[in-house]
Design a protein around this nucleic acid. Structure first.
Length: 203
DNA sequence: ACGGGGATCGGCT
DNA sequence: GCCGATCCCCGTA
């Protein structure tokens, strides 16, 4: 039985503009439910990837087999591999636009022992500090590409605790070399799981 | 705490 | 072949 507080975010949340979704996902909870038990983690760092004019986005050169789910409607999971690792994205806006939010870091809430088993030997901080580490700790592999995150089963996103007491920061995206970078990265300030620099960058 | 370099492999030109 | 929305380890402070 799903508790009220674990109710999935509605489709309408993901259909909004990508920048707003990237910012508003901070503090939300990712839930991964399986026979092994429930894993819960709080989103503390995100990046927005837009459709038109964003050279750094996987969708910049159109639809391919790899990025196909990025062109699904908002609320769909987009999981891709890079450097032999997986990264988890939440698709935003209407279908065929090709925009998404990358989840760059989460803070473990429950099921920490299982996360440790999934990650292998590492420090507590490195359990979920970074997009691929977060993915591995939550048991999110390539097979989750295209999953409907509003279904409220197996893998979804729910409201989580209010973020009113914490401070938010933004900066340029990490690891992007091409194109003029804008402040498309959002993070919870002073959270130890945030993967990049905490200072604000200015363009 | 921070930075540099190597590992690694699937997708794309 | 090339290259990346990365990670990990090993230098320096």
């Amino acid at each position: 039985m799903i508790l009220v507080t674990h109710a999935p975010l509605a489709r309408s949340f993901f259909l909004r503009d990508t920048i707003s979704v990237a910012r508003d996902l901070l503090g939300k909870t990712i839930i991964r439910n399986s026979r092994e038990g429930m894993l819960r983690a709080r989103i503390v760092e995100t990046e927005a990837y837009l459709s038109s004019g964003d050279e750094a986005s996987h969708s910049a050169r159109g639809k391919t087999q790899r990025n196909a789910s990025m062109f699904a409607r908002g609320g769909t999971a987009y999981v891709y591999t890079i450097h032999a690792r997986c990264c988890f994205n939440v698709v935003t806006e209407e279908a065929d636009k090709g925009c998404a939010v990358l989840v760059r870091a989460v803070e473990p809430l429950s099921g920490v022992e299982r996360m440790r088993a999934l990650r292998g030997l590492c420090s507590d901080r490195d359990l979920t500090r970074g997009p691929a580490r977060s993915c591995e700790a939550l048991g999110i592999g390539l097979s989750w590409d295209g999953w409907d995150l509003t279904s409220g089963r197996r893998l979804w996103v729910c409201q989580g605790d209010s973020l009113s007491a914490v401070e938010l920061g933004n900066s340029v995206r990490i690891g992007i070399s091409r194109s003029q970078e804008l402040l498309y990265r959002f993070f919870v300030k002073n959270n130890r799981f945030v993967s990049g620099p905490q200072r604000l960058n200015h363009v």
